[in-house]
Amino acid sequence: MFFNSLLTNFAALEVGQHLYWQIGNIRLHGQVFLTSWILLGALLVFISLGTKKMENDPKGLQNLLEFLWDYIRDLARTQIGEKVYRDWMPFIGTLFLFVFVSNWGGALIPWRLIKLPSGELGAPTADINTTIALALLVSLSYFYAGLSNKGWRYFEYYVHPTPIMLPFKILEDFTKPLSLSFRLFGNILADELVVGVLVFLVPLILPIPVMFLGLFTSAIQALIFATLAAYYIGEAVEEHH
């Protein structure tokens, strides 16, 4: 593809190159799994340390984790509603934590220092496979949430408030995962590219504000992804009167 080769050669950045793992006859993007395992491992260690000794008067890490838990609960409760937010809070929280840890890990850790034979390590969310996987999980979740909560009455949503809405609502089921996945993918990849290009062109000082902007974007994208996922689930379980 011309587009890809152009990107590949641009500013000596490796774009669209992957570290392939071949297992049987399936092929995987190894760099995505390597970084996600490192980051998720760090996250799990962090959480295990924080929840090791839970006390009624929180101290240290437990405080931070409780703040995080409260933040996620508020997010889930405001979007999904008082009735079923408990069922979906772990999923929303996992999406938030996964995207946040991936984005920040990709931006904060100098992966470039680790040389791979092909491709390079980076944020797992800068790979289209990851974001599509997350977006499809969100789609499945809101269908499941709607059907399990309201049964076949879930499909009333498609003709609410008038049957004219039917084609648009059906279209929405396709645009939701598409926009979710491409928004996250585009933002994180663009951030990595901008930082990469700036570091290549002006290796001093100038990339730093852009890096901070990247951290900001990364956090915002995690919040947006989790909020939208919760909103879609909330929309599916909402009762129309």
Binding site: M1, G16, H18, Q22, P117, N129, A133, L136
Partner: peptide, 18 residues
Amino acid sequence: FNFFGATEGGLFDINATL
């Protein structure tokens, strides 16, 4: 594991990673 796989792919290379 094929660490030295062919450098095919591109940005929108969707495979079993998903």
